[in-house]
Simulated scan of single mutants.
Amino acid sequence: MSVTIYHNPDCGTSRNTLAMIRQSGVEATVIEYLKTPPSRDRILELVSAAGISLRDALRKKDTPYEELGLGDPAKTDEDLLEAIEAQPILLNRPFVETPVGTRLCRPSEVVLDILENPDIGPFTKEDGEVIIDAEGKRLV
């Protein structure tokens, strides 16, 4: 199974998502999107495939979102793309692509919906939240 994750190793959600992918038996292609930002066209492909708007793909927390006035409804997709291109941290993460689908995996357990083998056994997030218990029951 081919899986690609647009990853930020400093992000707990992204680390949890990657851990679930690996626990499913897949070694993903990891793209550290802050070091290798996706092109405008690639961003639009990811957003479209995930079924969300470009505005929905913006990260607000710990970014220059407010300072740049990106919440202004008059901002166009072109404005948003320019902002993401200049400051890739504005692109929310992690985006994950698999043959089953593409998702912005927030929360991280969304990745289970697009893995060919979502029965990954017990899984607890870094913060202690149990996603799958010892009996294999998905709790979230």
Rank of each mutant, 00 (worst) to 15 (best):
R55P: 15
D77S: 01
L115G: 03
P9R: 01
K125G: 09
R106W: 07
A50Y: 06
K60R: 15
Q23L: 10
T4S: 02
R93Y: 09
R59Q: 08
R103Q: 08
L58Q: 09
Y6E: 10
E67L: 13
T4I: 12
D77W: 02
G128F: 13
P122D: 06
I84T: 09
P73L: 02
L34N: 03
R22V: 13
E109Q: 14
N92S: 15
V30C: 02
Y33Q: 07
A28P: 13
G25N: 06
D56K: 05
V140R: 07
G12I: 12
L91G: 10
V30F: 01
E97P: 03
V110R: 06
N92M: 10
G101D: 08
T102Y: 06
T36F: 03
E109C: 10
L139V: 11
N117C: 06
S24R: 03
G25P: 13
D77N: 10
R15F: 03
P64M: 11
D127I: 04
G12H: 07
I89E: 11
I132F: 01
Y65I: 07
G25F: 12
R22E: 15
R93C: 14
V111Y: 00
K137Y: 10
S53R: 02
M1T: 14
T98V: 15
Q23Y: 11
C105V: 03
